[in-house]
Simulated scan of single mutants.
Amino acid sequence: MLHIGYTMMTEQAGPRELVAHVVGAERAGFDFSVTSDHYFPWLGSQGHAPYAWSVLGAAAQATERIPLMTYVTCPTKRYHPAVVAQKAATMQLLSQGRFRLGLGSGENLNEHVTGDGWPAAQIRLEMLEEALEIIRALLAGESVNHHGTHFDVTNAKLWDLPDSAPPIGVAVSGDRSCELAGHYADLLIATEPKQELITAFERHGGGGKPKVAQLPICYDTDREAAIARAHDQFRWFGGGWPVNSELPCPTAFAGATQFVRPEDVAESIPCGEDVEAVVEAVRPYAEAGFTEVALIQIGGDQQEPYLRWAERKLLPALREL
């Protein structure tokens, strides 16, 4: 059965609201949740970017059942991998085993803030691989001394470790990242229903492991209002990873998407209250072999009506997939 998740979108709501939303998602019956980890929103109209790890800690205490996951954290620039390992171990303890650590090679939007430049994609993947080695070793309880190409770790050891380390997911977009995911990860993370990503992941050792995707929707009883909101806050989504990973700030995303029309957004994001439209948008992910899909409801102030609709109509329909 395909598992359906809820997204705590830190770009569109404040920290207290995000925690309240995931409590509502647990009550509505979502199978899991994911949390974005950004320093900036993509567009100024989204309006938020709280510290995801504080939100996750609060969510772990406010919920009882729903799994939590970063989607995704970059362990290379803004955060050192030794610190990410400590965060993940603590979250696994706080959540009593409900946490998964989603990792990726990052976006300029969030990682440039440390002032250390934004490396080329190939270098970012090298850094991610080295970070994965460090994080894996620390979560295994090892004392780590590491002096590599990109990172130094001196006499590091985690003193509060869970009985079971949090599963690690790696975000993929091509064969090299699929190779890293197959070798180091316990699950695959992707945003497009491309079967070739799953095939590559399995070829490199990912056979039988979960595959998690994400999909934006914009529920509203007024379809035109939903389209307008999706265009205002999510028109960046169609830019694709090669573009979105390089842009440095919300104004750059605004400029890059200034000619995207509302009808363009409506063609790629289900808008309105048509359950079948969402089912058909999710179907390609199920057919490609994804085992989990996390939905994003666009609009931080539109979560409560969405959750009521999801509980009554959407989740039962999606579970038939």
Rank of each mutant, 00 (worst) to 15 (best):
E26A: 05
L43G: 09
M91S: 12
Q214K: 08
P15V: 04
A49F: 01
G240F: 02
G205K: 04
Q46S: 05
L180I: 11
Q214A: 15
V22Y: 11
L318I: 01
H38S: 03
H183D: 13
L18K: 06
I4S: 12
G141N: 14
L307W: 05
S143V: 12
E179F: 14
T76F: 04
T76S: 10
A190D: 04
G29R: 08
G97D: 09
L138D: 02
S36H: 05
V84E: 12
P242V: 02
H146M: 03
S173E: 12
A286W: 05
L56S: 07
A59E: 01
P162Y: 13
A294Y: 03
G207F: 13
G57L: 07
T7G: 00
G206A: 07
S45I: 08
C218K: 14
I168P: 01
E133A: 10
G238K: 13
S177K: 12
E129G: 03
E292W: 11
M91I: 09
L295D: 01
A13E: 02
R203D: 06
L103V: 07
G148D: 14
P262L: 04
A121H: 07
P75C: 11
K157V: 09
E292M: 10
A62P: 04
L158T: 02
V83R: 00
E142C: 06
L295H: 06
G115N: 15
I217T: 15
G115M: 13
L125K: 13
L187A: 06
A230N: 14
A49T: 04
V172G: 04
G238Q: 15
W309V: 12
G148K: 04
L128R: 00
L68Y: 00
L132Y: 03
E263N: 07
G29D: 02
M1W: 13
M9H: 08
R16G: 09
K157Q: 14
V19T: 03
A85K: 03
P119F: 11
E17G: 08
R65D: 02
P216F: 00
E202Q: 07
F32R: 03
W309Q: 08
F234D: 05
V265G: 04
A13R: 04
T10G: 06
L158M: 07
F40Y: 15
A137R: 14
A225S: 14
N145T: 10
G208P: 05
G29V: 01
T7P: 00
R319C: 03
W118C: 00
L101Y: 02
A165M: 08
K313D: 14
D116W: 14
A225R: 12
F253N: 10
A185F: 11
H80K: 11
A230C: 12
F237I: 10
E17W: 09
L307K: 06
W118D: 02
K194H: 06
S54P: 09
A286F: 08
E111N: 05
V279D: 09
A294T: 13
T10C: 10
Y285P: 02
W118V: 06
L180Q: 01
A254H: 14
L56A: 08
L307Q: 02
